[in-house]
Nucleic acid binder design. Sequence first.
DNA 1: CAGTATCCAAAGGGATACTG
DNA 2: CAGTATCCCTTTGGATACTG
Lengths: 125, 125
Amino acid sequence: MQCTRNQTEEHTRAMRAVQDSMDILNGKWKIPIISSMCYYTERRFSDILSDVVGISNKMLSKELKDLEINQLVKRTVLPTQPVTVQYELTAHGKTLQTIILNLAEWGRAHHDKIFAQEPLDSASS
Amino acid sequence: MQCTRNQTEEHTRAMRAVQDSMDILNGKWKIPIISSMCYYTERRFSDILSDVVGISNKMLSKELKDLEINQLVKRTVLPTQPVTVQYELTAHGKTLQTIILNLAEWGRAHHDKIFAQEPLDSASS
DNA sequence: CAGTATCCAAAGGGATACTG
DNA sequence: CAGTATCCCTTTGGATACTG
């Protein structure tokens, strides 16, 4: 092992910091929900519900509450009939955009890599 | 809404790419496990087990298999007695380092932000 | 529309013991 | 050391129905 004690401590600290992030972004849905809001200044409950494929309204409701508690998302009720609710990223929530962009980029790269490896059935037909 | 059709399509594509990433990095442990390997050229099973606080050997075993299947991690068995197994990030796995670093940085920033907000009990004593 | 409430099946995952 | 196997409790989260 070529690392010094200081590197080990830095490693430990970095691990904890990553864990802190993951505690807040926990579960299957947080990142996709934030992604949904990333490209718009504001987004309604039903918009996010259709953006995030597969999520149920119960889950979305719960996850948005979590994000609000952690101050990543701001919720605004508009006095319409029936009620409209808008969600938007807070300044703090927007600091996650870099990570989201990186994840999107990585997802594409990974997809391309796997695709390039696979023997294409269509080539044999 | 001030976005054009093209932006909407790009949004949809980005959401899918993020989902693709999250499908591979699913669960509580993948990111911390990769983090554990980020700072070293190679890491043994027991090293990772102690790095990732709270994980069980059963979980670690399963998650490492997943990562190996997705070609993010390479597993090497050394002919020692008893057996030693080394894990290392593949070239492809290393492309996640940016994301890990960003997550660590964000975790620290978030921690600092929350800490700065909290009324300190120690101040009143 | 934007949720909440309840029910319940399935998956997650810890503890422990065992193996090569 | 590096896992695997089993037991079993806990959490997750979908489906459905209901509310302001």
